[in-house]
Design a protein around this nucleic acid. Structure first.
Lengths: 325, 325
DNA sequence: CTGAAAGCGCTAACAT
DNA sequence: ATGTTAGCGCTTTCAG
């Protein structure tokens, strides 16, 4: 913050008042064309950059949004962030990103950071804890994307979510159609995601006349440290010939374990798609999430809410697409 | 920016002056313990969030850094961003990220955006154009990471770079050691990267007593739209039995083409490593970049420069590690 | 068409 | 230990 040259310097150099400089720089029609032109030049020559902080504090708007995600290194969130930034940019907003690593304390402190930076609104991928968002956020608009906290904490906010039940049901049904008779699941540590995807999984089994079996319903730790062992447990000990994996980070651990296991006829499926799945030697069925729409919709809702605080919250579900390889 | 409750509200509610509230909230020892305690409580109950904009404008420091990268979707930059954010966070700085898509205009406007937000310093992955950074940046400290613009534009700034020549030389030498006799290259569209990696490539050939051949030196377009065709050109028409690929985005296109080409004995190598290369059916030799160190070093230098503007710029080279699979 | 002056929320002298 | 005051850089009435 050493951008020494201020509007005052420009005003002095141009022999006009600060007010006129401000008007000229915002292309107000209320200033003569030559004056305006002259001021633009001088400002440019002086290397003047308007101080957006001062401006924001004056107009009570930052045109900046906050985005809270677990981890930009998770490919799903990499894409989601980019989609959100692009959509925000189109709407005239910048975005500040915070990684929480699924850590509730980091999520809360990240939220506070964003509020202190006076963001006009926040997009949250909730870590799913008991956080009282309304208490922290106060009047700041927010929308939950991809996940939401348990009732009643999400009630006042828009939610833009994927249809996890439908997506999972489609994949598991496909695995069964391809011949799997005993399909295990390695579920997510994230409770919202886990419960919806478990429902979809069980629905698919039931629809196929298969009784769900708790012995083959496993849950990954947040750091996935138990996934490889679970993979062995399900595929070898429990003799599953099909496996549904709840997200791409878990999938990566599973793929790492598979070569040790000698299960050439495994029917493998999972939520989240990745480009490089194209290069895998084994077939795989995935649910591709509508990431661009997720981002665009979240921004649309948030901007609408910023412009009209009385807008009533909605829950929007977008469908995932099944991809077979 | 609707965080209505200000320091004035807290002061009023607590029956003290704004100054006292300010002191209490910054844990100044110059305020009585009970008063301080009381103020903290009231502030918390009121849902008060200090306005960081007002604070920054007053103290002339934002504790925020800008980061300019081509594209967060490129896995190398995903990791670099996270490394930089983590290092910045440890040093007490937030970071605002801007994607340029290798577009010079976006880079310039992104820089201006960051300067208007009064960042204390900037980390830049240069698109490599003729941008006059000194003219835009003024007195704001900056460091170039991963790439730098041509002389003399980079001179006043620190540069934290990978040793591209060494890294490339090591890979190409390894391909030759593994039996390749005619190694082609598909180079990057980024001129800085391209010229250094070409040098390393040619050095490895020469060291092995092989004459470089321009007919097998190709360059990808920024969007990689010509890579698949070049892959065929080099591997089929030019009968290369080895191929060096300058970055991970190009590699992805090459991998997509390989199955069409029936070249089972190809010796394949490339810059940038990816976790999922573990799952590829064919062997591959890569240079793993020291991303965490790159980020940490860049932050260290930038923070040092912020604290001491007179610090002389340095160019730092970090070695890449060769990984054979 | 332009200027003077007030004030956004905060901190840092300078009082007391 | 606390209060008063000025001012960071900007926009925006209100005057002229």
């Amino acid at each position: 913050m050493t951008g020494k040259v201020t509007i005052k310097d420009v005003a002095k150099a141009a022999g006009v008042s600060e007010a006129t400089v401000s008007r000229a720089l915002s292309h107000s029609p209320r200033v003569k064309r030559d004056t305006s032109q002259k001021i633009q030049n001088i400002a440019s020559n002086l290397g003047y950059h308007p101080n957006d902080l001062a401006r924001s504090i004056r107009v009570q708007q930052t045109h900046t949004l906050g985005l809270i995600i677990p981890d930009i290194l998770n490919a799903f969130f990499t894409h989601l962030s980019r989609a959100i930034e692009d959509a925000a940019s189109r709407a005239g907003y910048d975005v500040i990103l915070v990684n929480t690593d699924e850590n509730l304390a980091k999520e809360a402190s990240g939220l506070n950071l964003l509020l202190e930076k006076q963001v006009d609104g926040v997009i949250i991928t909730s870590a799913g804890g008991p956080t009282d968002y309304a208490a922290i956020l106060g009047p700041t608009p927010a929308v939950f994307v991809d996940r939401m906290p348990p009732t009643p904490n999400h009630a006042p906010y828009d939610r833009v979510l994927v249809d996890n039940v439908q997506g999972t049901r489609a994949i598991v049904s496909q695995l069964i159609a391809q011949g799997a008779t005993r399909v295990g699941i390695i579920n997510s540590a994230v409770s919202f995601t886990a419960s919806e995807r478990l429902t979809g999984y069980q629905e698919a089994l039931t629809a196929a006349g298969i009784e769900p079996d708790e012995a083959i319903e496993a849950t990954a730790r947040t750091d996935n440290s138990n996934v490889q062992q679970m993979t062995r447990q399900l595929l070898i000990n429990q003799k599953c010939d099909g496996l549904f994996v709840a997200d791409n980070t878990i999938m990566q651990s599973v793929l790492r374990k598979l070569p040790d296991l000698d299960v050439p006829h495994l029917q493998l499926g999972g939520f989240d798609d990745q480009d490089w799945f194209d290069f895998l030697p084994q077939p795989i069925v995935t649910a591709r999430q509508p990431i661009a729409e997720l981002g665009q919709t979240a921004i649309d809702r948030l901007v609408a809410k910023i412009e009209d605080p009385d807008l009533l919250p909605e829950e929007i579900r977008l469908a995932a697409t099944t991809i077979s390889r």
